Simulated assay, not measured.
Amino acid sequence: MRIPRLPKSLKSLLYLMGINHLYQLFHNTPLARKWFMPGKRVDVGGYKIHYHMTGPVQSTETPTVILEAGMGGSTPYWTAVAPIVAKFAPVVSYDRAGYGWSDNRTEVCSIECLVEELHTLLKEANIQPPYILVGHSFGGVVNRLFTQKYPDEVAGVILVDSATLWKGKKGFEKHNRKARVRNTLLKMGFPLWIAQLNLLHPMMLKPLKDIPWRTKLALFNMFFLRKSARTYLTELSIVADCVEAAEQESSLGEKPLIVIRHGKEVSDTAPEMLKETEKMMIEAQERLMKLSSNSRMMVAKKSGHQVIMDQPEVVVQAIREMQKFLLEGWTPPKPAKKAADSENTAVQTS
Rank of each mutant, 00 (worst) to 15 (best):
E276Q: 09
H305G: 04
F88T: 02
L217T: 11
E265I: 06
V299H: 03
Y15P: 00
S93P: 03
K275L: 07
K170S: 12
R287Y: 08
L6M: 15
G156W: 04
Q248N: 14
L159A: 09
L145R: 15
K169H: 11
I194H: 13
E112C: 05
T234H: 11
M204G: 05
Q58H: 08
K11V: 12
G171K: 06
Q306I: 08
P4Y: 07
V91P: 01
T106V: 15
P83W: 01
S342W: 03
G329M: 03
A240C: 08
E265F: 05
K170L: 14
E235L: 11
T75G: 01
D95R: 00
R5P: 12
A218M: 04
K338R: 05
Y150T: 00
S251N: 13
P151L: 12
K301Y: 04
M281F: 06
M309T: 13
S237C: 11
A229S: 07
P202G: 13
R144T: 12
Q128R: 08
P130I: 01
R177D: 12
L257G: 11
K167E: 13
T54M: 07
D161G: 12
T79S: 04
L205D: 11
A229R: 06
H21A: 15
G156V: 05
W166P: 05
T345K: 07
E283W: 08
T62W: 00
Q317P: 00
E107G: 03
S250F: 14
A82E: 06
A300T: 08
T349I: 02
L122A: 09
K264F: 01
M222R: 08
P191K: 13
Q24F: 07
D161W: 05
V92N: 05
R230A: 10
V314Y: 07
P7F: 14
M53E: 03
Q311E: 15
L200T: 10
D43S: 10
L159V: 05
L13K: 13
E112V: 11
V42G: 09
F172C: 00
G39I: 04
L326V: 07
M204T: 13
V243W: 02
N126I: 01
A69S: 15
L13A: 14
N143E: 08
Y47L: 07
K167P: 09
L274K: 09
K149R: 15
T331G: 00
P83N: 02
E286C: 08
F325P: 01
P63G: 09
L219A: 06
K264E: 05
V81R: 00
L118M: 15
H21K: 14
N143I: 02
R261A: 07
V115M: 06
G70D: 08
Y47M: 07
N344V: 07
Y51R: 01
Q148E: 11
G140P: 06
S93F: 02
H262G: 01
C242Q: 03
Q348K: 09
V141I: 14
K255V: 13
G253A: 10
P130Q: 10
M53K: 06
S292E: 10
V141G: 04
L217M: 13
S295G: 09
R105G: 15
I111K: 02
A32F: 14
D43F: 08
